[in-house]
Design a protein around this nucleic acid. Structure first.
Length: 835
RNA sequence: GCUCCAGUGGCGGAAUCGGUAGACGCGUUGGACUUAAAAUCCAAUCGGGCGUAUAACCCGGUGCCAGUUCAAGUCUGGCCUGGAGCACCA
């Protein structure tokens, strides 16, 4: 066995052997219980970055650990390969985005293999290939059949730089999630997926996800945004047309209904023109035009003072008979609730601001109980801010004196009884806009027939292939529109002329079901076989970045539920456990090309080897926390692996893989055996418990240090020593094998083993041997540590107390004081309470 | 504003149940080996009392202030700071 560690050589050797022999191939059934370990699949951007390395190493170690523990492990990989970067690259060079994508995939595949990841490459999926997107389109059609896909004209988010619309989830702070440009509003006819139909279940089932962090679950819950309230319909008393109209509002504060002093409709409110008087028309039109022009960011800014104009018409409050004016103001959102808001300035901060500005009346209807009977004696205008806390109703007729929490129900009930309102649950979640005016995505499988209108493409005509005869040099429109052959087709129903839908699907559609396809990746008859998917899913452990907390994870949950209701699978949630790994930082900030603080994985492989990269990326921080990359840390890990290698190579002749341990060992040998058992236990528990790889790695170091220390005391090894050393080193190699995949494999073979260390079962420990033979008894006085005594581990409670009290030091310190109480914690400490 | 997460040495971090705070590593300092360097090995490394060394000892210390307890990094209440998400959602 070579004395020096030579990672570059051994890693290349084993990479090829593993690849040639497909050692990580997974059968659908091998009699063992299943375990599905999944990393969020990458976008083939060109090269792996350290975030990938971290993500995939974590999942790989989990997969290997589970395999060693007797599971049939599914650990697949694929490519989220539709999307804008490929198209932008293609436009820049007027080349095919497929070529760019293929080249990147080829390069990154080599990197993944170099990193020693145990993927079953036979299950690789690539979302931009027809054998995949055929089924994406097929699923679209199933959702269409179920009424979960529809087309409508709507105000949508438009990114001018990407030249396409975006889903709500893809607008971050009013900017495009991808390119950071300010998003504009446009009115377009677009395809939507009815995710709102599942809002309630998506919220409720978060409770099923015990293996998800609260942070992600809360983010999703907030995004879905369920609220309970009421709809009230207010009759319009002076509609210009004379017709009978009413304005419905949604409110979560039905208890404040007696305090309404005006009503606001959104500038885009559908009936707004019919609610505007002739004399107010011009001002209203100007206001609406101005609102349209404003960017999303301007409009949503909460610092902005509120503006609005009166419509000139009025509504009647059926509770009080009061007549109040209608206004339009852009603080009312057309997409939420009914698009109209009842305004109670005394009990809503926004209404308060608005009423102050336009000098609108205020009426107190909720008062803190302590302030009664005179909540606000002379005039509501004395209020300096809206009172939004709980309280008791005042100025509210029959409801006076009622607690506002009860009044919510009572008042809504009255509206129900009298026919002008109802209880209402409202969600913040909007439907998912999935059309994109771009080329590099799955074409939406729909045609527009001159006679029949919208016609879905029949399933036997799938896939609708992306045309190749396109011009990528066009500006300002989707390249797909330049194809001379794509647009025109015939209607599958009536045979007349029809045109194809030119929009492609949001790539998040493609990534909403890829984890299902892995179970049955090569199926060309169906998107996946139901039984196989039901067998493998849900994913037992999903690992990926927190940036998908809402986007991908919400979409995928929705897809699973929708596909369940299409009868394609029979579980409710796709990802049982979710680990959101932290970011990889350098010098305290996120690695990015613009900051120039990136570290290229290839260089690390070249200089130190993949094992060092794997070890280091797991070592310094727990997986969920951000990880600060340091060159010194890499160096340290490399040195540690050298140290491990030297330990094995310098002892190669002394190590016998068929060692046998007698039960009666010399003291130092017994101690080492105990240390090994202790570390097996500790490492196993650390992996099982939240995947604390950082402490796993410190335990590797402790184990290695212990073996070195043991050895330093031996001038010559007898038979027993050799057996103990063999046990220690074999255990060490097995424990390290999920992380240092190459080094342990090479050492395993150099020690004369047949087969792969990666097929070895995980180490077991003996509970009795996993503790040391003696313990340090801590003696405290009044909770402060005063002495430490080495005692036998099996010491009784009584003896602990006796030993503690007989300690010379304790005697001195307790001299002349009264011992009130003695607390004995078995195996740990004795606390003496004195006065 | 609302929601969630976090705060421990010079740094990353450790500490199943409330029970020795600072494991393991990085860095730093000193030493061994070497002609020298690299590599390797050994030792020290929370602060204060403390001042020349050595040894010992004592006190304080996990963002801040209280509380519960024999005992608090850990539990409770109230703050402060940082990060993340949502946000004119009625």
């Amino acid at each position: 066995m070579k004395q020096s560690y030579y990672p570059q050589e051994i890693e290349k050797k084993w990479k090829k052997i593993w690849e040639d022999n497909k050692v990580f191939k997974t059968e659908n059934d091998n009699g063992k219980p299943k375990y599905y370990a999944l990393s969020m699949f990458p976008y083939p951007s060109g090269k792996l970055h350290m975030g990938h390395v971290r993500n995939y190493t974590i999942t790989d170690v989990i997969a290997r650990f589970k395999k060693a523990n007797g599971f049939n492990v599914l650990h697949p990989i694929g490519w989220d390969s539709f999307g804008l970067p490929a198209e932008n690259a293609a436009m820049k060079h007027n080349a095919d985005p497929e070529k760019w994508t293929d080249e990147n995939i080829a390069y990154m595949t080599e990197q993944l293999k170099m990193l020693g990841l145990s993927y079953d490459w036979d299950r690789e999926v690539t979302t931009c290939k027809p054998d995949y997107y055929k089924w994406t389109q097929w699923i679209f059609l199933q959702l269409y059949k179920k009424g979960l896909v529809y087309k409508k004209e709507a105000a949508v988010n438009w990114c001018p730089d990407c030249g396409t619309v975006l889903a709500n989830e893809q607008v971050i702070d009013g900017k495009c999630w991808r390119c950071d440009s300010e998003v504009e509003k446009k009115y377009l006819s677009q395809w939507f997926v009815k995710i709102t139909e599942y809002a309630d279940e998506l919220l409720k089932d978060l409770d099923l996800l015990k293996g998800w962090g609260d942070n992600v679950k809360t983010m999703q819950a907030n995004w879905i945004g369920k609220s309970h309230g009421a709809i009230f319909r207010f009759p319009v008393v002076d509609a210009p047309s004379g017709e009978k109209m009413e304005v419905p509002v949604y409110t979560t504060r039905p208890d404040t209904v007696h305090g309404i002093t005006y009503l606001v409709v959104a500038p885009e409110y559908k009936d707004i023109e019919k609610l505007t008087t002739e004399e107010n028309k011009q001002a209203v039109e100007e206001y609406r035009a101005n609102a349209r022009k404003m960017s999303e960011i301007e409009r949503l800014s909460t610092d902005r003072t509120k503006t609005g104009v009166p419509l000139g018409t009025h509504c009647k409050n059926p509770f009080t008979g009061e007549i109040f004016p209608l206004w339009t103001a852009d603080y009312a959102l057309v997409e939420y609730g009914t698009g109209a808001v009842m305004a109670v300035p005394t009990h809503d901060t926004r209404d308060f601001d608005f009423a102050k500005k336009y000098n609108l009346p205020m009426k107190v209807v909720i008062a803190p109980e302590a302030s009664l009977p005179n909540p606000l004696p002379e005039g509501a205008r004395e209020l300096t801010a809206a009172y939004t806390e709980e309280g008791v109703l005042v100025n509210s007729g029959e409801f006076n004196g009622m607690k506002n929490t009860e009044a919510k129900k009572a008042i809504t009930q009255k509206a129900v009884d009298e026919g002008f309102g109802e209880f209402k649950t409202q969600f913040r979640l909007r439907d998912w806009l999935i059309s994109r005016q771009r080329y590099w995505g799955a074409p939406i499988p729909v045609v527009y027939c001159d006679k029949c209108g919208i016609v879905p493409v029949p399933e036997d005509q799938l896939p609708v292939l992306l045309p190749k005869d396109v011009d990528f040099s066009v500006v300002g429109k989707s390249p797909i529109t330049t194809s001379p052959t794509f647009k025109d087709t015939v209607c599958p129903v009536c045979g007349s002329h029809a045109t194809r839908e030119m929009d492609t699907m949001d790539t998040f559609i493609c990534s909403s079901w890829y984890y299902l396809r892995y179970a049955d990746a090569k199926n060309d008859k169906e998107c996946f076989n139901k039984d196989i998917v039901n067998k493998w899913l849900p994913v037992d452990q999903y690992v990926g970045g927190i940036e998908h907390a809402i986007l991908h994870l919400l979409y995928s949950r929705f897809f699973t539920k929708a596909l369940r209701d299409c009868g394609l699978l029979n579980f409710d949630e796709p990802f049982k456990n979710l680990l959101t790994q932290g970011m990889v930082l350098k010098d305290g900030s996120k690695m990015s090309k613009s900051k120039g603080n990136t570290v290229d994985p290839d260089e690390i492989f070249e200089n130190y080897g993949a094992d060092t990269a794997r070890l280091f990326i797991l070592s310094d921080s727990p997986p969920a926390r951000d990880f600060d990359w340091s060159d010194a840390g890499v160096e340290g890990c490399y040195k540690f692996l050298n140290r491990v290698w030297r330990l094995v190579s310098s002892n190669a002749e002394n190590i016998n893989l068929n060692y046998s341990l007698s039960s009666n060992l010399a003291k130092d040998n017994d101690d080492l055996v105990r240390t090994v058992h202790m570390q097996i236990k500790g490492i196993t528990n650390d992996i099982t418990n939240e995947f604390q790889f950082n402490t796993v790695i410190s335990k590797y170091r402790e184990l290695v240090n212990a073996i070195y220390d043991w050895q330093a005391k031996k001038s010559e090894l007898n038979e027993e020593d050799k057996n103990v050393l063999s046990f220690a080193i074999v255990s060490m190699l097995k424990l390290m094998s999920p992380v240092a995949v190459y080094l342990t494999e090479e050492a395993w073979h150099e020690l004369g083993a047949d087969g792969s260390i990666h097929d070895q079962p995980w180490c077991e420990w003996d509970e009795n041997l996993a503790k040391s033979s003696s313990i340090t008894l801590v003696v405290q006085i009044n909770g402060k540590v005063k002495d430490k005594i080495e005692v036998d581990a099996e010491i009784s409670k009584e003896d602990m107390e006796k030993q503690a009290l007989s300690s010379q030091k304790i005697k001195e310190l307790t001299d002349g004081k009264t011992i009130v109480k003695v607390i004995v914690v078995p195996g740990k400490l004795v606390n003496i309470v004195v006065k």
